[in-house]
Simulated scan of single mutants.
Amino acid sequence: MSREQLPVELVDADGLPLGSTTVTHAHTAPGLLHRAFSVLLFDADGRLLLQQRAEAKTRFPLRWANACCGHPAPTKDVVTEAAQRLDEELGLGSIALTPVGVYVYRALDPVTERVEHEYDHVLVGTVAREAPRPDPAEVAALRWADPDDVRRAIEAEPWSYAPWLAGVLAAWEAAAVEPGDR
């Protein structure tokens, strides 16, 4: 089964479950609000891991984003599902993840005309020594960057970054969780 046919959990504005649909249907205009997660990974120096989304992605391909994004299956634990996705995309299944907040957003991809309308759980983890092993079907490139440099780059070239990245970074900052905090 393709990832586009997997189920996602529809939610209301407070994150309460309303039912489910497929990834494709949830991202078809006008877009249905559904549960998602975004993982921010840091190294020991406080640098942020960015992934350039693969060209084959149906939403915002080739844009720079946080380390990993995805959708937990309906009724499943967000942290467990995010750790599994992190392993699938980057080969980093042993990273402890800490929830730091939620970011709700809606964004239309002008290229694919798909819509992101997500109740996005923001999770943070630290990469100790593991070297990411990205799946080329999911990830075009990886790079480490200072979070302040990323914020400035998003302001200067928003078209180069996934539209959720600024909000995900803001949710992390609002939680005042330093990389490595548990």
Rank of each mutant, 00 (worst) to 15 (best):
M1P: 09
A13P: 00
G70N: 04
E178N: 07
G91D: 04
T80P: 00
T75E: 11
P179Q: 08
L50T: 02
Q84S: 14
L165K: 05
T24C: 04
Y103D: 15
L108I: 14
P72E: 13
P72Y: 07
P132M: 05
L50A: 09
G15Q: 14
V39C: 10
A13C: 00
A174N: 04
L33C: 03
D146W: 03
S20H: 11
A13W: 07
V127Q: 00
Y161T: 00
V139D: 08
E55T: 06
E155I: 01
L108S: 07
R151C: 10
G19Q: 06
F42C: 06
S160T: 10
F42W: 08
V8W: 11
Q5P: 00
P61A: 03
L169Y: 10
V100C: 14
R106T: 15
D12C: 02
D45G: 13
R53S: 05
P134V: 08
L92A: 09
D181V: 01
T24Q: 12
Y161V: 03
L40P: 03
P110V: 05
G125H: 06
G167A: 07
V79F: 02
R182W: 10
G93D: 13
L10F: 08
R63Q: 10
V139M: 07
E116R: 11
A131M: 11
F60N: 08
A153E: 15
H25V: 13
T80D: 13
G19I: 02
W159A: 14
T28Y: 00
E173M: 06
V100N: 05
S20F: 08
A171D: 09
F60Q: 00
E55R: 15
D14A: 12
V104F: 04
V177R: 15
E173H: 12
C69T: 13
D77F: 02
F60I: 00
H27A: 11
A156G: 01
A140Q: 13
E116P: 01
A29F: 08
C69I: 04
Y161N: 05
A83V: 00
A174W: 03
D181L: 11
L40T: 05
L6K: 10
P61Y: 02
V102E: 15
